[in-house]
Write a protein that binds this DNA or RNA. Sequence first.
DNA 1: GTAATTGCTCTAGTCACTAGAGGTTCAAGT
DNA 2: ACTTGAACCTCTAGTGACTAGAGCAATTAC
Lengths: 137, 137
Amino acid sequence: MFSIGQLSSQAQVKVPTIRYYEDIGLIDPPHRSEGNQRRYEPDALSRLTFIRHARDLGLSIDAIKDLIVLNANPDMPCKEAHVIANQHLKDLQRKITQLQQLSVELTRITQNCNSDTVGHCKVLEALGDHSSCKTDH
Amino acid sequence: MFSIGQLSSQAQVKVPTIRYYEDIGLIDPPHRSEGNQRRYEPDALSRLTFIRHARDLGLSIDAIKDLIVLNANPDMPCKEAHVIANQHLKDLQRKITQLQQLSVELTRITQNCNSDTVGHCKVLEALGDHSSCKTDH
DNA sequence: GTAATTGCTCTAGTCACTAGAGGTTCAAGT
DNA sequence: ACTTGAACCTCTAGTGACTAGAGCAATTAC
Ligand SMILES: [Zn+2]
Ligand SMILES: [Zn+2]
Ligand SMILES: [Zn+2]
Ligand SMILES: [Zn+2]
């Protein structure tokens, strides 16, 4: 039996976040003490650890909800879990590509100014002008 | 003189976004028609184009606010604009590094399952377990 | 003149939390 | 047993940068 604070430090998830996860139905409401405080069983810790790691990997709460439902049915095919993970990986890689393009443009933009004053600043000029960019964004 | 819709299509910024920018003080409130509709001068277009491009490059509204203030004072030193742009570039590169690490982990995770059922799914296992990860996140 | 489009304000919703107010319960020390 | 202080409770509101929708008014085209 954990208090919410003990669960929090074990799972490395902040106390208000745990209550938030309960509110949105990501974890089950635990039993309460006589004084109405939350008391968790050990399985709440493994559930929360799963959520924590999936969040750290960047999965959305909705995706994690789906994964939790799957996790609860060990006899179901796991293909859907693979689809969720692969989709997230694809999203991630698209995002990386996009940020790399921005990084290229910004590198160019920040190396362009020989002036000292705003009036002739090439950085400010380039920040406002897409025509010298090499990529879309 | 543009209507908000004309400004919107010229600057490629949606109408509600333009009104939002006005609310938060990023653009000046324009004159109004007799019937209380917004009527913009050409300089509103260049301001909005600047904002659009800076946003596309990933700068925050706050950073853009600072840049706009600078832009209005052509005799000031432009060093501060360089600082803002460089800071953003650094943030961007840190973010890219972090996402690349996630991508590496997720690639490993998604290629690990030989099972067909949730009960033995390595993907689900690895999503919940940080101990097999090579990096922090 | 009338109908379609565009405009107006205001409120609330998005995502995943985080902060704070104002109060209650618990655990430890005396 | 009593007191203190930490941890807990609920509820509301705020974050960033918009987006959606309701309910109405103005403009434009035919
Ligand atoms: Zn400069
Ligand atoms: Zn550009
Ligand atoms: Zn599997
Ligand atoms: Zn990990």
